[in-house]
Amino acid sequence: MSETARYYLKLAMPWLVMAALLLIWELACILFAIPEIILPRPTKIFEVFIARFDILLRFCLETLWTTTAGFLLAIAFGLLLGLAIGASPFVYSGLYPLLIAFNAIPKVAIVPILMIWLGVGAAPAVITAFVISFFPIVVNVATGLATIEPEMRDVMRSLGATQYEILTKVGIPRAMPYLFASLKVAITLAFIGSVISETVGGNRGIGFLMLSAGARNDAPTTFAGLFAIAIMGVAMYAVCALIEQRMTKWAFRGEVVG
C-alpha cells in the first residue's frame, strides 16, 4: 500500500468502523425481526432524525446551552481551586480529601436536592454539569502546578522571585497543557451532567425529550436523541482539542501543529 493510501485509510477508519457497526445493527434487526419498540433500525432512527430535526435541534440547543454554561463555570472555578491547591500545601491538605469525598457522590443523587432549591428549569442542569465536570479540571491544574521541577523553583528563588512571580511565570504556563487536557474529559462529563439532570426531572433539553418519547413508547425518537447527544459530545470535544493545540503548541513540541 502506498504512503498516501495509508494516510487516507487512516483518516477514513473511524467512518468505516461506524458504518460497519450500523450495518451490523441494521442487519441484526431485520434478521432477528426485533420489534421497533425494543430496538429500532438505524435507518428508521435516521428517518425520525430528519423528520423531527427542528424539534431535536430546539431541545439540543437547550442542552447545549446548559452544558456550556456549567462547563464554563467549571473552568473558572476549577482553575481557581486548582491553582490554590497546587500552590499551597495547606489548601491542598485541607481541601483534597473533601474533594475526593465530594467526587465520590453519585451526581444523580444531588439533582432532586437542586430541584428543591432551584425549582425545575435550566438552573439544576447547569449546576449538575458544573459539579460533575469541575473535578478533573481541579486535579489536573493542581498536578501541573505541583510538579514544577525543584531546580526551576530554585532558579526563580535565587533571582529573588516572589511566590506570585513563580506562580505567574512558571506555574500557570506549566499548568496550561494539563488544563486543556482536562477540558476534553470535562466537556463530555458536563454533557452527562446536564442530561442526567434533564432526565431525572425537568421540562427542557434533550434528556427530557428522550424521557417523554420513551414514555410514549416512541423508541426511534429516544434513539435519535441519543445520537444527537453523541454528535454534540464529539463536536464539543473537537472544539476543546482544537483549542488545546492552539494554546499549548510547545507541549506538543511542534509535532502536532508542524
Binding site: 521541577e149 531546580e151 526551576m152 530554585d154 532558579v155 535565587s158 533571582l159 529573588g160 512558571v170 504556563p173 506549566r174 496550561m176 499549548t248 510547545w250 507541549a251 513540541r253
Partner: peptide, 14 residues
C-alpha cells in the same frame, strides 16, 4: 543577584 545553572538546563519550553 545570584545566577544559577544546573545540570538540567531547566529552560521553559513555552
Amino acid at each position: 543577584g545570584v545566577g544559577m545553572a544546573f545540570q538540567n538546563p531547566t529552560l521553559m519550553p513555552w
